[in-house]
Design a protein around this nucleic acid. Sequence first.
DNA 1: CGAAGTTTTGACATCGTTCAAACAACGTGG
DNA 2: CCACGTTGTTTGAACGATGTCAAAACTTCG
Lengths: 232, 232
Amino acid sequence: MLHVNTRQALLPHPVLIHPGHVPIALDKPLLQFIAPGDDVDCTPASPRLYRVIDGCLAVYHLLADGRRQITDIVGPGRTIAQQPDRDIGGAIKALTFTEVEVLDPTANPDLATEASLDSLDRLVRHATLLGRMNAAEKVANGLLDLAAQFPRKLRQGRPVLTLYLTRGDLADWLGLTVETVSRTLNQFKRDGVIDYAHAEIVTLTKTERLKEIASGNNPATSARNNGKGKAQ
Amino acid sequence: MLHVNTRQALLPHPVLIHPGHVPIALDKPLLQFIAPGDDVDCTPASPRLYRVIDGCLAVYHLLADGRRQITDIVGPGRTIAQQPDRDIGGAIKALTFTEVEVLDPTANPDLATEASLDSLDRLVRHATLLGRMNAAEKVANGLLDLAAQFPRKLRQGRPVLTLYLTRGDLADWLGLTVETVSRTLNQFKRDGVIDYAHAEIVTLTKTERLKEIASGNNPATSARNNGKGKAQ
DNA sequence: CGAAGTTTTGACATCGTTCAAACAACGTGG
DNA sequence: CCACGTTGTTTGAACGATGTCAAAACTTCG
């Protein structure tokens, strides 16, 4: 699929300061700043840990013919464990101006294993999303995940989130097409579940409803799911 | 989806002896035998490494309504790194009589990290399969994976593999339905790419052709993939 | 032979894709 | 300040791959 994004290079995203990120002790801590659209430099032979301080990374995998699957979206506070095999189409891309702390896994074994298990756990859930959910469930789950990782602020008690992902990124993440993502988001908007004026600032107006949709309890389409527990 | 399998409990699968599996040094190595359909006992609070000596395991994840996604199929020689969160529907099930070596990850840190990275790598590829491939590509990739993990023998130079998975297992693994799996396999059979008399013993008669299909070079349907690199 | 589970096959429905076009946002250069 | 190019988003119409539903064919075993 591969949907390129040039828009985000132009947006003056406010740099959110996340306190409480204790710098990891290391003989040579290294900060790296990555511009939107750029790949994280994963060239060194020895594996590295990449801890996101601020911004947004997309871990993705490319097929030979250009189809792209984003396997994880990584926000502030999270650490990337896997060493993407660039030879076979794996890489990590920044979706906005992103600040990354580069660490040595052997010097931080606990963080390394924790990050590894975290990635594994998220990937298992995402695989379940990709293989067993319909479009509405996928988008609802994606929004809830992003809302937790990229909280902007609360507006009248409603969570507001910054979408660093374009519709194309969302499509490549959720295993859909741009059109389906757009249609589903607009349907949610029409139903009053979410709201947005600009495509990249989304308010979750009915979080509970969104959670219901995410878990398959969708009155509009859930009839099929009853009984044998099937969908899609 | 959740397709239960009772057949495999009845099949007298030949126990393949895989030499070269050096037992890991540990103060207390433990062998475990699991019957088909049984879950691997993952109850201990401290994480464990499970190394398959012989047989076949399925790592899966359940949704609240019963839909199932098998995230990995594990054959002899491979080690399971992730600790399935049984609370949220994660578990590991034996698909045939399976012998497992239970190891302490802290006593085998190298094996633990290697297994972890291996799982992560496979899961990324599988996510790409689930999110970005059509039925024929999924089944072709699945067959090639299984042929590598469960080689039976060569018949007239053709690889023959034992399918410990039922059509339902294949469906839950590849993100399809039983019917689509069956139809796709029969189409491959009609095309002379594979062959089978019994549903669980499959011969890959044209491995090269199968690899082409797996990578998206399917003359019948690849026209769409040209140009912008899209599919499904 | 009958029961139970699995696989296969057919007919049909539909969700998501594909194709196409309009619209919106933004920066550039005149 | 405005026309224009570029990129992203939205919308519509039509198609088709895959799911759903139903039933028959097999296999294995009691």
